[in-house]
């Protein structure tokens, strides 16, 4: 039986912060891949699905320009179609393509994703989750 990754079961019980942190860890790995891919490369680049399931290792081919466009928005992530379910509602699909989707984090997860942008180690970087929760409640 094929592995089932990126489902809502795969991340059941995880907090919004943990979900955003997992996505940010995959984002960091993909930034490492993009560095190696030649700047002149026009063919799609193999990236790792940026869903919140820590066991997911699925690969998606994304055109370089599309990848760079997504990376300009710290709330946006690339995922295998269907793996948005692992976000437990903390992300919404903003674009659908044949072999990948682009999602945008919402609420606390969006705030955490923004705070983790550019951090050398998203797994351990500190974030102000309480402040984010407070702003949610006030909204």
């Amino acid at each position: 039986m094929a592995d089932e990754h990126g489902t809502d079961h795969s991340t059941a019980g995880l907090s919004a912060e943990r979900i955003a942190r997992n996505d940010a860890i995959f984002r960091k790995a993909n930034e490492g891949i993009e560095v190696v891919a030649s700047e002149a490369r026009e063919e799609p680049i193999p990236f790792i699905c940026e869903c919140a399931d820590p066991a997911c290792r699925d690969i998606i081919l994304v055109p370089p320009a599309e990848y760079r466009a997504v990376r300009t928005n710290p709330r946006r992530f690339l995922k295998v179609p269907g793996h948005e379910a692992a976000a437990q509602g903390w992300a919404r699909v903003v674009e659908r393509h044949e072999n990948y989707v682009i999602v945008e984090k919402v609420g606390v997860a969006a705030d955490v994703a923004e705070q983790l942008e550019g951090k050398p180690n998203p797994a351990t970087a500190s974030v102000e989750v309480e402040a984010a929760h407070t702003r949610e409640a006030e909204a």
């Binding site: 790995a29 993909n30 490492g32 891949i33 190696v36 193999p46 990236f47 790792i48 820590p54 290792r57």
Partner: peptide, 10 residues
């Protein structure tokens, strides 16, 4: 190979 090094890091 670079992709796989990132997978190993994960």
């Amino acid at each position: 190979r670079a992709v796989n090094e990132q997978l190993e890091g994960l």
